[in-house]
Amino acid sequence: MYVCLCHAVTDKAIRKAAASGCSSLAQLRCELGVASQCGKCARQAKAILNEAAPTHRSTLPKQTLLITQMAV
Protein backbone atom coordinates (compact mmCIF):
# COMPACT_ATOMS: atom_id res chain seq x y z
CA MET A 1 0.00 0.00 0.00
CA TYR A 2 1.22 3.51 -0.74
CA VAL A 3 1.83 5.52 2.41
CA CYS A 4 3.44 8.62 0.94
CA LEU A 5 1.84 9.60 -2.35
CA CYS A 6 4.14 12.60 -2.86
CA HIS A 7 7.21 10.35 -3.05
CA ALA A 8 5.55 7.01 -3.95
CA VAL A 9 6.73 5.29 -0.75
CA THR A 10 5.04 2.03 0.20
CA ASP A 11 4.64 0.28 3.52
CA LYS A 12 7.07 -2.37 2.23
CA ALA A 13 9.74 0.29 1.68
CA ILE A 14 9.22 1.58 5.23
CA ARG A 15 9.47 -1.95 6.65
CA LYS A 16 12.64 -2.54 4.63
CA ALA A 17 14.14 0.69 5.98
CA ALA A 18 13.23 -0.38 9.53
CA ALA A 19 14.87 -3.75 8.95
CA SER A 20 18.06 -2.02 7.86
CA GLY A 21 18.19 0.10 11.02
CA CYS A 22 15.97 3.11 10.43
CA SER A 23 14.29 3.90 13.75
CA SER A 24 12.81 7.40 13.54
CA LEU A 25 10.61 9.49 11.30
CA ALA A 26 13.54 11.85 10.76
CA GLN A 27 15.64 8.98 9.42
CA LEU A 28 12.77 7.86 7.20
CA ARG A 29 12.48 11.40 5.87
CA CYS A 30 16.18 11.44 4.97
CA GLU A 31 16.17 7.97 3.45
CA LEU A 32 12.84 7.86 1.63
CA GLY A 33 11.47 11.40 1.60
CA VAL A 34 8.48 10.41 3.73
CA ALA A 35 6.60 13.38 5.26
CA SER A 36 8.93 15.90 3.61
CA GLN A 37 6.40 17.49 1.31
CA CYS A 38 2.74 17.68 2.41
CA GLY A 39 3.18 15.73 5.67
CA LYS A 40 -0.14 13.89 5.51
CA CYS A 41 1.63 10.52 5.63
CA ALA A 42 3.65 11.19 8.78
CA ARG A 43 1.30 9.52 11.25
CA GLN A 44 0.85 6.36 9.16
CA ALA A 45 4.55 6.13 8.30
CA LYS A 46 5.52 6.41 11.97
CA ALA A 47 2.97 3.74 12.93
CA ILE A 48 4.37 1.32 10.34
CA LEU A 49 7.93 2.11 11.42
CA ASN A 50 7.08 1.53 15.08
CA GLU A 51 5.38 -1.74 14.21
CA ALA A 52 8.36 -2.95 12.16
CA ALA A 53 11.28 -1.57 14.18
CA PRO A 54 10.93 -3.69 17.37
CA THR A 55 11.34 -6.87 15.32
CA HIS A 56 14.67 -5.61 14.05
CA ARG A 57 15.82 -4.22 17.39
CA SER A 58 15.16 -7.45 19.27
CA THR A 59 17.71 -9.26 17.09
CA LEU A 60 20.51 -6.77 17.77
CA PRO A 61 23.05 -7.15 20.56
CA LYS A 62 22.45 -4.87 23.56
CA GLN A 63 25.56 -2.81 22.82
CA THR A 64 24.26 -1.98 19.35
CA LEU A 65 20.91 -0.99 20.81
CA LEU A 66 22.56 1.40 23.24
CA ILE A 67 24.66 3.02 20.53
CA THR A 68 21.63 3.32 18.24
CA GLN A 69 19.52 4.89 20.97
CA MET A 70 22.27 7.37 21.84
CA ALA A 71 22.67 8.38 18.19
CA VAL A 72 18.95 9.11 17.75
Rank of each mutant, 00 (worst) to 15 (best):
residue 42 A to S: 14
residue 1 M to G: 14
residue 29 R to L: 00
residue 19 A to Y: 09
residue 18 A to E: 03
residue 18 A to V: 07
residue 31 E to W: 02
residue 48 I to K: 03
residue 31 E to Q: 06
residue 70 M to P: 05
residue 69 Q to A: 12
residue 52 A to S: 14
residue 35 A to W: 05
residue 70 M to D: 08
residue 30 C to Q: 06
residue 68 T to L: 10
residue 64 T to A: 15
residue 49 L to G: 00
residue 57 R to Q: 08
residue 16 K to V: 07
residue 54 P to K: 04
residue 72 V to F: 03
residue 45 A to E: 01
residue 35 A to S: 14
residue 24 S to W: 03
residue 43 R to T: 05
residue 38 C to S: 01
residue 44 Q to N: 05
residue 51 E to W: 08
residue 63 Q to G: 09
residue 34 V to W: 09
residue 65 L to Q: 15
residue 7 H to M: 04
residue 7 H to I: 02
residue 43 R to Q: 13
residue 54 P to A: 06
residue 65 L to D: 13
residue 9 V to Y: 11
residue 17 A to Q: 02
residue 55 T to G: 13
residue 62 K to T: 14
residue 41 C to I: 04
residue 12 K to M: 11
residue 48 I to T: 01
residue 26 A to C: 03
residue 29 R to N: 09
residue 9 V to P: 08
residue 37 Q to S: 08
residue 40 K to D: 11
residue 31 E to K: 13
residue 26 A to R: 03
residue 64 T to N: 12
residue 30 C to V: 05
residue 40 K to W: 12
residue 45 A to S: 10
residue 47 A to W: 02
residue 22 C to M: 02
residue 14 I to A: 05
residue 18 A to Q: 05
residue 5 L to K: 08
residue 27 Q to H: 00
residue 43 R to D: 11
residue 25 L to T: 01
residue 31 E to P: 00
residue 37 Q to V: 06
residue 30 C to G: 03
residue 8 A to G: 09
residue 20 S to E: 05
residue 70 M to Q: 14
residue 21 G to I: 03
residue 40 K to S: 10
residue 6 C to P: 09
residue 29 R to W: 03
residue 34 V to M: 08
residue 15 R to M: 09
residue 3 V to F: 12
residue 5 L to I: 06
residue 40 K to A: 12
residue 65 L to I: 14
residue 23 S to V: 10
residue 69 Q to P: 01
residue 24 S to K: 01
residue 47 A to P: 01
residue 43 R to G: 01
residue 25 L to V: 08
residue 45 A to C: 07
residue 59 T to K: 12
residue 72 V to Y: 05
residue 30 C to N: 05
residue 45 A to I: 00
residue 45 A to R: 04
residue 29 R to A: 15
residue 57 R to V: 12
residue 53 A to E: 13
residue 61 P to R: 14
residue 7 H to V: 05
residue 10 T to N: 07
residue 28 L to P: 11
residue 19 A to D: 15
residue 13 A to H: 15
residue 54 P to Y: 09
residue 70 M to V: 14
residue 32 L to A: 07
residue 21 G to H: 04
residue 33 G to E: 03
residue 50 N to L: 06
residue 34 V to L: 07
residue 54 P to R: 09
residue 15 R to L: 07
residue 42 A to H: 04
residue 33 G to V: 04
residue 21 G to N: 02
residue 52 A to V: 06
residue 45 A to Q: 04
residue 56 H to M: 12
residue 50 N to P: 02
residue 70 M to N: 10
residue 22 C to Y: 01
residue 6 C to V: 05
residue 5 L to M: 08
residue 57 R to C: 11
residue 59 T to E: 12
residue 2 Y to W: 07
residue 17 A to I: 01
residue 42 A to T: 02
residue 44 Q to F: 01
residue 69 Q to M: 06
residue 6 C to K: 09
residue 9 V to M: 09
residue 6 C to H: 14
residue 48 I to Q: 02
residue 67 I to T: 11
residue 62 K to V: 10
residue 7 H to Q: 06
residue 1 M to F: 12
residue 69 Q to D: 13
residue 40 K to C: 15
residue 50 N to V: 02
residue 17 A to S: 11
residue 56 H to N: 04
residue 54 P to H: 08
residue 44 Q to Y: 03
